[in-house]
Design a protein around this nucleic acid. Structure first.
Lengths: 336, 336
DNA sequence: TTTAGAAAAGTAAACGATTACATTTAGCAT
DNA sequence: ATGCTAAATGTAATCGTTTACTTTTCTAAA
């Protein structure tokens, strides 16, 4: 790999001059510029980003650190795609840390990202009081949070109105005459879990349906929990007629259990999930779900981050996207 | 962020000494070591990886470049998880490039990764003659290929026996009495596509079933193609009784079409997919599929890469994993 | 022909680490 | 005390950029 020095030598100028033409500094005479450009081409020179990053603390947006809880969750891969597309357009690279809701892992990745001098962070905090992320923000690093906010700290945030989304889902079920609606919620430490639960309860209250703690079940936010909790719900003396699952992993898990028992959706049990997937129509019956615009969230987060890097003083923004209820066939239809 | 210099000043020693204790150089006297350690702790010092990377071309494995064709494909997210777990254990970070089968994007990411001085690359070449990757290998960068190899070039490779996997799938169908088996294949430029097609044809030949080009359809390796090509197959005067889909995106697409038409699986149409997903049992009926061990592939690739970085001269390895036929319910059962 | 002043180019320090080489210190025999 | 050797530590170059500051070159007015 050739360096500035090589180019300078070949072109017969100093490194400073080469650097100037690279950075489009107008003071360079046309002819020297041409000489330099030729040398660059001849040597296939391309600047070393490591050296650049070491040298300049200057505001750039070349390397972005991404910290997400679970890459197996299709929602996050949508988010990643959104980030990635925007990063690509900006000639930025993204370093990814998948911390699996594991604090130690989260901390390690954070340290690595810091010491890689990333220009900014996009993170989904493990919970509202996530001290590592709070610290990060306080230390003045450019940070934008996705999916989950941080209490007592001013930080850019891009997420969805979880409570409203859940409310809409339950309302939909209620309008379909369901009166006994179970809820499989995820890890209660995760803010989104609680917001969705709040939406669930709000809807029941509003429609005068008693909240029965027996049919609100919770464990982790993963596939296995979905499967096991669905079994638990179905085993109840008085099982629900519909289940609202708190995220797509839980939904998929619940679906496995329902299939295994040969239950008919929606006749035997209706199901509505938080989080849509692009292959919801491949499910049989197609899944009714609360769609979060993952791609847009990622894209927007990246936009905010770049802004933040460029102007650290701008006021914090809080972008709340609306969810969309994707009505398909897993809850029955009006004819019911 | 504090630097070596800061630590040195606080401890009252030179930067060299600090560096020595950090790198566990035994020549440092015990007492100075203690002083230095205290200073490190006091300042919460942690070395700047950017400076380290700039300084040493030394064999390390701290930053890995990953280039994959499609992050929406669950197979690759398994691979990423495998890589990531191993990377975490080795204190390495991974920079990810998702090139979406787009050559320009691939090239840009490659350039970025190079100029970020990553210690090595894990890539899924866009095709067998991928000149960019070939060049990369020839320039002497540590590279390991996953999923797809490279012609005329010595390079580490971790993949699966695609032909055998496809063969097994078709054989399974044949034993279930299917005689007219369609194949939805993906982008014909991708080597895996061709290998799977070869396995399909091999099985038919071996069981003396004529190959009918009419029921071998191809477009891209994505969801939409799966949906449209399935429709095409189903619209034939003499449609197949079973469909073999070339990857999980195609499978999911085909499933959408089958559902939409209200066809029963496997009675009306059987389906077997290449690539398993962890939620195969959430599909109704559960999908019979050829499982690639994505996680293991990623993990193994990372292992090989670290080896390669440490000893660039070791012989190239070619790891071919076996696929596993996950028999579930989408092809019918023996009772049929 | 001078020479002021602008334009163009060059020099060298800095970013934060590693490391070859140089220097200081300590220990010990004479 | 002196010298010698080994142990401990320090000095400074280096990686590839950027950039403040300095120097050289050019233009054109006096």
């Amino acid at each position: 790999m050739s360096s500035l020095k090589n180019v300078a030598d070949l072109a017969g100028v100093s490194v400073a001059t080469v650097s100037r033409v690279l950075n489009a500094d107008e003071v360079v005479k046309y002819e020297t510029k041409v000489k330099v450009m030729n040398a660059i081409k001849a040597l296939k020179y391309s600047p070393n980003r490591v050296a650049q990053r070491l040298r300049t603390t200057r505001k750039s947006s070349r390397l972005i650190g991404l910290l997400i809880p679970d890459i197996q969750n299709p929602f996050y891969v949508d988010v990643i795609r959104g980030i990635e597309v925007f990063a690509y357009a900006n000639n930025a690279a993204v370093v990814i840390g998948n911390f699996s809701q594991d604090e130690k892992k989260e901390k390690l990745y954070l340290d690595i990202l810091k010491s890689e001098s990333v220009d900014g962070f996009i993170v989904a905090p493990s919970n509202e009081k996530d001290i590592y992320i709070k610290e990060l923000v306080k230390e003045g690093f450019p940070v934008v949070c996705i999916d989950r906010g941080l209490s007592d700290v001013e930080v850019d945030l891009v997420k969805v109105d979880n409570q409203k989304g859940a409310f809409n889902a339950i309302e939909h079920l209620i309008k379909l005459q369901h009166k006994r609606i179970g809820h499989i919620t995820g890890n209660q430490l995760i803010p989104t879990t609680m917001e969705r639960l709040a939406g669930y309860e709000q809807a029941l209250k509003q429609y005068n349906i008693a909240i029965d703690p027996e049919i609100i079940v919770s464990r982790e936010s993963d596939y296995e929990s979905g499967a096991e909790l669905a079994a638990h719900l179905l085993d109840l003396k008085n099982p629900p007629t519909a289940i609202f699952t708190g995220n797509n992993l839980l939904t998929l898990g619940a679906l496995e259990t329902i299939n295994k028992r040969g239950l008919k959706i929606p006749e035997d049990i209706a199901i509505i999930g938080f989080d849509d997937v692009y292959w919801a129509n491949s499910l049989n019956p197609p899944l009714t779900a609360v769609r979060q615009p993952g791609f847009e969230i990622g894209k927007r987060a990246m936009e905010l981050l770049i802004q933040r890097i460029l102007s650290p003083e701008r006021e914090v923004a809080s972008i709340i996207y609306k969810t969309e209820l994707m009505i398909r066939r897993s809850c029955g239809s009006k004819e019911k």
